[in-house]
């Protein structure tokens, strides 16, 4: 039995045939859609490496069944940059050395975007660290990650103000 779902992935509407109804969104992205930027760290919802945005909210894609997401909008790390121009969160991660080995980075960035969109982080680094604590960085780049989130949040807020004005 083959099931097919519709997804908008990084702005592109796609119809995806699911040969296995149990496939997770993570495996769908990595193995069938060749979007390998999203990483698999634990495959059980405990490390955050696989974080993506589904309808704007951050989720662990290793826990989400693709079949349950018919009609959803999915954004992955590959969908952030606007051509050559990086998303402000991506740029801030470079600026603040928010990584070492880079394996957690796509998840950290997606989580940061989700967090900023949630809009209740404020500018308290401790609160940001608390709200980013679903994303393990074994290299311990937390200093740079937190600074990057703070800065990106500011940049995005300014941009929104400008856009509104």
């Amino acid at each position: 039995m083959s099931l097919s779902i519709g997804l908008t992935i990084n702005g592109q509407p796609r119809t995806v045939a699911l040969d296995d109804p149990r496939v997770t969104l993570l495996d769908l992205l990595r193995e069938r859609l060749d979007l390998t930027g999203t990483k698999k760290g634990c495959d059980r919802g405990q490390c955050g490496a696989c974080t993506v945005l589904v309808d704007g909210r951050r989720i662990n894609s290793c826990l989400a069944l693709a079949a349950s997401l018919d009609g959803a909008t999915v954004t992955t790390i590959e969908g952030l940059a606007d051509g050559e121009a990086l998303h402000p969160v991506q740029a801030a991660f470079i600026e603040h050395d928010g990584f070492q080995c880079g394996f957690c980075t796509p998840g950290q960035i997606m989580s940061a975007i989700g967090l900023i969109a949630e809009g209740h982080a404020g500018d308290d680094p401790e609160r940001i660290r608390e709200l980013m604590s679903g994303n393990i960085c074994r290299c311990g780049a937390y200093q740079g990650i937190t600074e990057a989130v703070l800065e990106a949040q500011k940049t995005l807020a300014e941009r929104n103000r400008r856009d509104a004005a």
Partner: peptide, 12 residues
Amino acid sequence: RHDSAHKHVAGT
């Protein structure tokens, strides 16, 4: 900056 910085943030 780390030589792979851009690739790390772009997922490439």
